[in-house]
Design a protein around this nucleic acid. Sequence first.
DNA 1: AAGCAAATACTAAACGTTTTAATTTTTGAC
DNA 2: GTCAAAAATTAAAACGTTTAGTATTTGCTT
Lengths: 369, 369
Amino acid sequence: MFEVEAGIVSGEETGRQGSREPAASAKGRRRATIRDVARACGVSTATVSNALAGKPHVKAQTREAVERAAVELGYRPSAAARGLSSRTGRTWSVGLVVGDIENPVVPKIVRGAEEILWANRTSLVLCNTDFQQDKKMAYVRALIDRDIDGLILVSHIFNDMEARAISLSDLPLVTVNRMNDQWQADYVGIDNAAGTRAAVDYLTGLGHRRIGYIKGLNTSTAAQARFDGYLSGIAAAGGDTDPALVIQGDYTQESGAIAARQFMALSDRPTAIVAGNDLMALGVLGALRDLDIAVPNEVSVIGFDDIHMSAHPLINLTTVHFPQHETGAMAARLLLRRINEGPDDLPRSVVLPPQLIVRGSAGVPPRRR
Amino acid sequence: MFEVEAGIVSGEETGRQGSREPAASAKGRRRATIRDVARACGVSTATVSNALAGKPHVKAQTREAVERAAVELGYRPSAAARGLSSRTGRTWSVGLVVGDIENPVVPKIVRGAEEILWANRTSLVLCNTDFQQDKKMAYVRALIDRDIDGLILVSHIFNDMEARAISLSDLPLVTVNRMNDQWQADYVGIDNAAGTRAAVDYLTGLGHRRIGYIKGLNTSTAAQARFDGYLSGIAAAGGDTDPALVIQGDYTQESGAIAARQFMALSDRPTAIVAGNDLMALGVLGALRDLDIAVPNEVSVIGFDDIHMSAHPLINLTTVHFPQHETGAMAARLLLRRINEGPDDLPRSVVLPPQLIVRGSAGVPPRRR
DNA sequence: AAGCAAATACTAAACGTTTTAATTTTTGAC
DNA sequence: GTCAAAAATTAAAACGTTTAGTATTTGCTT
C-alpha cells in the first residue's frame, strides 16, 4: 500500500554520552528554567518572575539584566507550570468541539474562531466527534482534565445528565448553531427559520406552489428551525402541503441525491426543491444532472449555507448565506468575554442574519402541460 | 449587523456567598484533588497515585477502595500537574500546523491525524498560519511553551536559522507534503512527480502535444516536483515546450481562472491544461465555462488532489488522487512512533502513491483546423 | 548621624501530580 | 516466637511557576 524508505541521516551521530549531567546532554540542552535565569543574574526567582511579567517594584537595572539573561538562555516560561501555580490559573487554551471537520462549513467556523483566539494568545484544541455521544463526552472530559479555559461546541449540546456527569457547572461555554434549553451557555447562530422562509418566499414569488423540502438531521434545533421556515413560507403562499414533499435527509450529499430521485419519481413532481443545506443541494443537482433534468428550467433548487463551491460557475447554486467565518469569530469573542468576566453576567445569544444569495439554480416554474 | 438578545437566565441566581471556604463555593464545587481522595480513604497520595495507575504493590482491597473514592468524588488527575511532575513528562498533546484550514485537502489530513491521535489519547492543538512566517514561528513557540509532545507541519518547514531560534533540536517532528533538506524530521507525502507524469502521459496518450501547466506556489517542494513531472512527461512524448505554456499560479481557484484566460488568449491555444491542484483546475473549468469553451471537446483539463468536489457530476474532473486521509493518519503514526521511541532511530520517509482518477474533463484533442 | 518611608528584593508556601527512597506491615519458614 | 524476605505504604522531594508576606536596601528629612 505504501513504501517506507530509509531516510537520510543528516548531521552528526546521536550517540549517547556516558555522563548524565543535567546541564547539557547528548540530545540537546535541557530547557532553561526560571531558576537558571535567577542564578545567571544573581537574583531570586520571584524577581525574575516579576521582572518578566512587567510588575512594578523592580529596579530598571535589574529588569534589564533579567531580560538579557532570559534571552541569553533562551528562557521561556512553562505553560503547564504557570497554569498550575497562579491563583487565577488560566491555561490560555480552549476546546473546539465539532462533529465533522470535513463538512465545508466547519473549517470556516474554525478559521473564524482561530483568528480571534490567536489575537488573544489562546490556543485551540480541536475535537472531532463524528457526532458520537461517547466520543464527545470523552473529548470533553479530556479537555477538562487539561484545565482548558473554555469550550466552544459547534452543532453539539449536552443534556442535563451529561452536563452533570462532567460537572460542567463553571466552565465557560458557547454553543454554535444549536440552542440549548437545559444548560446555561452563550449561544451564537443564525435565524434559520428566516433563512428558509426567504428561500421559499423567493420561490413562491416566482410562481412555485409545489415545493419539496429535504430536512437535515432532526437531532438539531437548527434543522427544525429551517424546516419551520419552510412550513411557514408554504402556508403564507397557500402552497402545496402534500407530506410526500418532505423527505428526511442527513446533511450529506448522498442523502440529497437520494431525496431528489425520490421527488422525481413522484407522479406529481415538485417544481422546486429546497434543501436543508448546500451539501444536500449539491446532491440534488448531481442527481438531476444524472436524470437529465434541467435546472432551473424544469426544477428549481435552493440550498442553505453558501459553501464555497456553491458559487462556482458550474454549480451556480441559489442559496441562503450563513456567515460562517463571522459565526466562529463571534463564538470566540463570546467565550473570551465570559472567561474574562466570570460566570456572573447573563448568558447572551447572538443571532446573525442569513441572506438569500440569488444565483442561477432557481427560476420560474415550467409551464403546466 | 447582528442582534444581541438578552439571554434567559435558567435556574438559581448565582449570588456570591460571603464565605471563602475552599470546600464548596457559590460557583460549583472545587475540583477534587488526589489529596481529597487520599484523605477520603485514609491513605497517602502516593498510594492513590499507584492504585489508579495500576502499579504493582497495591493490595487489591486498597485499590478497590481508592477507585471507589475516586469515582465518588469525581476525581480526575490534572493533566498540567502530571505533565509537570513525571520524569517522563508527557503532555499527551501535539501541535498540528497548517497554512489554511479552508483549503479542502487540509481538513481531510487533519481528520486522518485526529483519528490516530484520538486512538492514542493524544489531543491536537490546531494552528493556522495563513502561510505567514512570523505567525508560524509564534505558534510553534507557543506550542513549545506548552510542552507538546510533538509537531506535525503540513506544507511548512523550518529553515536552519528558525529551527535553531526555537531550539527545535529534540522535538519530535513530522513534515507533510514538504521535504526538508536542512532539518532532521520524519516525512510523509506522495510522489508528486509521478502523479503529474501520469496525468501528462494520459493526455499525450490521447494525442495531446500542446499542454499548458499551472504551477503552484514555488516555495513548496511539492509544487516543484509536480512541475518536474509535467516537464518529464512533455519531454518523453516530444510535446510542445513553449514557455508560454507554463503559468505561475498560487493554488487558489482565482489564480486558476486567470491562468485559463491567459492560455485562451494565446494565438496558439493549448489543447489541454494541467493544474498543480484541483482548486486551480476548478478555476480553469469556471473560466472556460464563462468563455463558452467546451470541456473536454475543445480543451481537456486535469487537476491534482482529488478533492471532494471534483467527483461531483457537474464538475467531473479528471485528476490525480492524493490520499489525504491516509497522509494525515500516517503523519500521526510516525509522530507517535517517534515520541515513543525517542530521537534515536533514523528519520523515516513514507511516500504514498498517487493515482490518476479518470473522469470526464479530459478527452482526445479537437481535430486540427 | 539617626530615623523613617519608600523602593526593591527575597523567602517560603502553594499549585496537583509522580517518583524515589525509606519505613512499616505482612507473610512464611524455621 | 524469631527473623528474614516480601509486600504494602508512606514521607518527602521533585516538576517550574506565581504570589503573599517579609526583609533588606536606598534616599530623604531632620
